[in-house]
Write a protein that binds this DNA or RNA. Sequence first.
DNA 1: GGATTGACGGGAG
DNA 2: ACTCCCGCCAATC
Length: 124
Amino acid sequence: MKSSPRSPGPVSTHAKIYAVLRRVPRGRVVTYGQVATLAGLDGQPRLVGYALHALATGTKLPWHRVINARGTVSIRSNGTASLSQRLLLEREGIAFDARGRVSLERYRWKPSRSTLRQPNRRGK
DNA sequence: GGATTGACGGGAG
DNA sequence: ACTCCCGCCAATC
């Protein structure tokens, strides 16, 4: 039996989030809320942020591709935004606005039909 | 084991 | 378009 800490499900919440994160292709970004939805935690974007916060420094996960719904790099508890995150994204070809915002309309990752779990995004 | 926090989102003003 | 408030749930102390 798995020594699941206090995970309600068979897989820990973090694991689900990390699994989704791994699918985010290079040059694309996703919002916390979107990751939460894809991870089966629809409506709990904070859990995503918490999971990312627990990531080790040398993680292989593309954590930098996760930004908030405003299209900006989230401010850490540190009080400052991760500058490296922006650099990593720009390095992948993602352009930032003069105000430091990314065009979600343009870079938001759209998962394949197979992994599609999104209920119905604001279909513009 | 209870209380607080936290890489957010959405609505309301 | 921006700011403030509340809520959700897990992890931490």
